[in-house]
Nucleic acid binder design. Structure first.
Length: 447
RNA sequence: GGCGUGCUCGUCUAUCGGUUAGGACACGGCCCUCUCAAGGCUGAAAGACGGGUUCGAUUCCCGUGCGCGCUACCA
């Protein structure tokens, strides 16, 4: 039988990076084994539950490219879904829970207590055979010593997590439960429930947690905790996927950067680590830069234009050839797309602003005649391309008896307003003679 | 407090009981260079601690310490 795994998030309004990695490990295992990846929404808590909150999850998974074989098609709990085990929203499965609870009640495996229904937990040492953690034998805690039974149906009739989680896994024929280590202890309850329903429990694989770099617990506000910080922060999904696959798992052989296909091929449950991983934003950034540099041109243009639009920079008035040429000078020079507007905005603004500190340093009287000479050289350059502009600048520098840098810096500041950016000569070529000369002229007026 | 689990450079990790403990990110230096990146070379940086077992422990066992998780009519 092919494995059936599931990702079962609760719609809280955001997708935690740890949750995304849980989804990834489930997805990887399904793809590695040729199994089925099920998405189920655990929306039993009506209070903090909305279609928008579900959409955050669906959109996040789609952005990452983690497609599900079964599950909802939209964030609407009563909407369409695919797969034979629906509905895939717990809010739509109430009658299943009710029926199961009645079954337990009738067989004396559960009982009413103060209006709630409690499950009669076996009084024995629990054993979990975890695919990652190994065999875990667990004695009762002091509180369980007093009362090991737990509530499965609240006094208001609402079923609790342990109950619905088990029933759904059972009815959806889940074979491998891959989830965060925070659920490890719960597993004793879940195994007991499966047994009470007369069904052998699925295999369990508890993956280690992701902590902050300093080892503290990663909470909502911490850097990198929310998936939207990547979707909105100009990251590439392949970079995020690659990075989080390295948290709690290793492809060995000193590999860091892997294609999705390689990760699918190498990934397996027994190789997942037992210890927690810490989130290192710098390393993610490095991978992001690696992938950004290798982007296919079309996708690069699309993402770049979209980024500019979001930043309020309209590239539409400019000819397509100009936009592409401008972007070509930027490729590989920045990591996240969110850096792009500041990096290359000068291509698309009529009036640039000068970096104040740089202006103080470069827009000095002695640079005025130099810039004038450079302007003249550019004016009479045989062609307005990178090659001849470079030659023109270097000849001018030589004639003036200064190093090339002595002209490069003021010139860059004059045409871009900044001290760093794309290759000067290429950027001049893209900007074109008219803009370049006008910008130098304006800068001259500032000196 | 109880129960569970983990521990190799700052971080992610490699290591089938024998290695000058390797790689990557970040950091320092040098080279390249029109800036910034990228790239090349290079440097510093680790087996939590204490006992065993063994000819030999980072590796196996025990203890201590520390981290993390759980300990709900949350999920």
């Amino acid at each position: 039988m092919k494995p059936r795994v599931r990702f079962a998030p609760s719609p809280t309004g955001y997708l935690h990076i740890g949750g995304a990695r849980t989804a990834l490990f489930n997805w990887l295992y399904a793809r590695h084994t040729g199994g089925t990846f099920v998405l189920r929404i655990e929306d039993t808590d009506a209070a903090r539950n909305s279609q928008e909150a579900v959409d955050v999850i669906l959109d996040g998974l789609r952005w990452l490219g983690l497609d599900w074989d079964e599950g909802p098609l939209t964030g609407d709990a009563t909407g369409p879904s695919k797969g034979a085990c629906g509905p895939y929203f717990q809010s739509q499965r109430k009658q299943n829970y009710q029926r199961r609870v009645e079954g337990l009640l009738s067989r004396g495996l559960a009982y009413e207590h103060e209006g709630a229904i409690k499950f009669k937990m076996p009084r024995e040492t629990a054993v979990i055979n975890d695919l990652i953690k190994g065999e875990i034998r667990r004695d009762l805690t002091d509180r369980e010593e007093a009362d090991p039974d737990f509530v499965i149906l609240r006094s208001d009739g609402q079923p609790v997590f342990h109950l619905v989680n088990v029933i759904d896994d059972l009815e959806m024929n889940i074979t491998h439960v891959i989830r965060g280590e925070d659920h490890l202890i719960n597993t004793t309850k879940h195994i007991a429930l499966f047994k009470a329903f007369g069904v052998p429990p699925p295999h369990y694989a508890h993956i280690p947690l992701i902590l902050n770099k300093d080892g503290s617990k990663m909470s909502k506000r911490d850097q990198g905790a929310s998936l939207t910080s990547y979707t909105e922060g100009g990251f590439l999904p392949e970079a995020v996927i690659n990075y989080i696959s390295l948290l709690g798992w290793s492809p060995k052989e000193n590999r860091e950067k892997l294609s999705l296909a390689e990760t699918i091929e190498r990934f397996d449950l027994p190789q997942v680590f037992k210890h927690n991983a810490r989130f290192d934003y710098e390393k993610l950034l490095w991978l992001q830069g690696e992938y950004a540099r290798e982007l296919a041109d079309d996708r690069f243009y699309e993402l770049a234009v979209h980024t500019f639009a979001k930043a309020g920079v309209d590239t539409n008035p400019f000819p397509l050839g100009y936009v592409k040429a401008a972007l070509d000078t930027c490729k590989g020079k920045f990591k996240t797309f969110s850096e792009l507007p500041a990096y290359a905005g000068f291509y698309f603004t009529a009036v640039i602003e000068y970096d104040a500190e740089a202006a103080k340093k470069d827009f000095v009287p002695e640079n005025k005649p130099r810039l004038e000479k450079l302007r003249d050289a550019f004016t009479h350059a045989p062609a307005f391309n990178a090659e001849s502009l470079e030659a023109a600048l270097k000849e001018t520098a030589k004639a003036l008896g200064v190093k090339a840098g002595g002209l490069v810096h003021p010139c860059r500041l004059a045409v871009t307003g900044k001290t760093s950016g794309p290759s000067l000569y290429h950027l001049l070529q893209v900007l074109g003679k008219e803009r370049v000369l006008a910008r130098i002229e304006r800068a001259l007026g500032q000196i």
